[in-house]
Amino acid sequence: MRQTSSHLRSLVAVASTTALLVLAGCDSGKQREPPTPAPDPRAMQAWEQVAGVLRHPRCLNCHQVESPLQGDEGRAHIPRVVRGKDNLGVAAMRCGNCHSPSGNNPSSGVPGAPHWSLAPLSMNWSGLSSAELCRALIDPERNGNRDAGALVKHMGEDKLVLWGWAPGTGREPVPLAHDAFMEQLQVWVNAGMPCPKDAATEGDRS
């Protein structure tokens, strides 16, 4: 627990000295508890904007347990594919059998981007509230061992992530322009990546 906390501190330090200052005051914060004192409301607003993107089907559909979802309505992927050992499917049902690394396929309508895959099981976001998602995102054990800088870089540059902003015909892009999203992400990161309280957000599970 202490380890996580100090780890987080160091991550944030990389991201921003401002964040370090903010976090310095909450050394006693426990894992899975929002940092005290009460977070900056601007940071919380920023988080909600970020969460609106991450919880959008474009992201959420592949942050699932065993099989991806599909479409704006987030229904089961047709045909059903399963995770497999490397998050890329199983023997003759591999993501790359239909999804191309070079981009969306205008003829088949099948979307594509580099390393098209399910997010690792540790990054399952299915059924998470905003608060739960937030905690998952800042937990190195559940975010692919990314520090704040790596998270920012991932969301700023990863081609599969960027696909969410250009998903091709028939798919709604994530709800915020990428520039604006990165701005909000930075605000939240700069504020020390604070997470909302559960009580306020339990209701918005979907």
Binding site: C98, S108, V110
Partner: peptide, 24 residues
């Protein structure tokens, strides 16, 4: 189907069972 939904167009690309209707 032309949309990678039926598998009738499956070929092997580097040993993988690719849907040729969805491979540019």
């Amino acid at each position: 189907c032309g949309r990678a939904l039926c598998g009738a167009c499956t070929v092997h690309i580097d040993g993988e069972a690719a849907r040729s209707c969805s491979v540019m």
